[in-house]
């Protein structure tokens, strides 16, 4: 057969890799007329297992919470439906938290998707561009009448995850092997993820803090962000929140703003 009539062996080889309902591609064989079934199955297994392993490495707390059998079954569905679109596996699985939220067997653990969102943000922060965090002295140097107008540049590692459940506490309790105390899952918790130097940190934001941090990260002024945060949460305290964000390494720089 001339090559132009058979332009891509890959198009014949690839589809059955992640689809168990497809038969072994007819273009492959074993040596000396042997069958290719268990041979092709090695590739199927390598692909599926390695991608499930990749999700397990990105989502260790979800794995610990669900147990390996549940996790691997859930991850297998996701891997087959949404294989990676990039060879950088540390970037894989951004759609996994939404998949978990929809996964019928995970409906009894409604906070699981938010724990996954924190884990995904944790790895994004881990690989983010290195940048020196803003020094607290920079804020002290601003004259009070200009404070409301200043804007911040978010640190490349900054992440914010909001949850109606105790996602931060559950995340923190399941990222290592220590025994887990009973956790009341019903307290809303918002996570601040930063990496000022090389260690990723995940903190719980105070009421209004997530709205405040998200406004600042999107480039709105300190005054605008504080107003939005107060609207969301009347108990919001601007002084402790801005000090906390700077201390956590949420920003790299500040500027006087347009006013």
């Amino acid at each position: 057969m001339p090559p132009e009539q058979n332009p891509s062996f890959a198009a014949a080889f690839a589809p059955a890799l992640l689809d168990p309902t497809r038969t072994v591609p007819a273009i492959v064989t074993g040596p000396n007329g042997k069958a290719a079934g268990r041979r092709y199955a090695v590739y199927r297994n390598n692909v599926t297992v390695s991608l499930i392993d990749a999700l397990a490495a990105i989502y260790p707390a979800v794995l610990r919470i669900t147990g390996p059998d549940f996790f691997r079954a859930m991850a297998r569905f996701h891997v087959r439906r949404t294989p990676p679109a990039s060879p950088l596996l540390f970037d894989y699985g951004h759609g996994f938290p939404d998949f978990i939220a929809q996964y019928e067997h995970a409906q009894a653990v409604p906070w699981l998707a938010d724990v996954a969102r924190i884990e995904r943000a944790w790895l994004d922060a881990y690989h983010a561009r290195d940048a020196a965090p803003l020094s607290p002295a920079r804020l002290s140097a601003i004259v009070p009448e200009r404070l409301a107008d200043i804007v911040f540049t978010p640190h490349p590692a900054l992440g914010i995850v909001r949850s109606p459940f105790s996602a931060v506490t559950i995340f923190a309790a399941n990222r290592d092997d220590a025994p887990v105390e009973r956790i009341d899952a019903s307290t809303p918790e918002d996570a601040l993820i930063t990496r000022p130097e090389f260690d990723v940190t995940v903190r719980r934001l105070p009421p209004g803090g997530a709205v405040f941090a998200a406004c600042l990260a999107s480039g709105r002024s300190l005054g605008e962000a504080a107003a939005s945060a107060l609207e969301a949460s009347p108990e919001f305290d601007i002084a402790s929140n801005i000090a906390g964000l700077i201390e956590a390494g949420a920003f790299t720089s500040l500027a006087p703003g347009d006013a």
């Binding site: 692909v47 294989p83 679109a85």
Partner: peptide, 16 residues
């Protein structure tokens, strides 16, 4: 090879 169209298979796949 390891990528076909947009899917990355994370394995070293063979070629004729």
């Amino acid at each position: 090879w390891s990528t076909h169209e947009t899917s990355f298979f994370n394995d070293l796949l063979p070629l004729p």
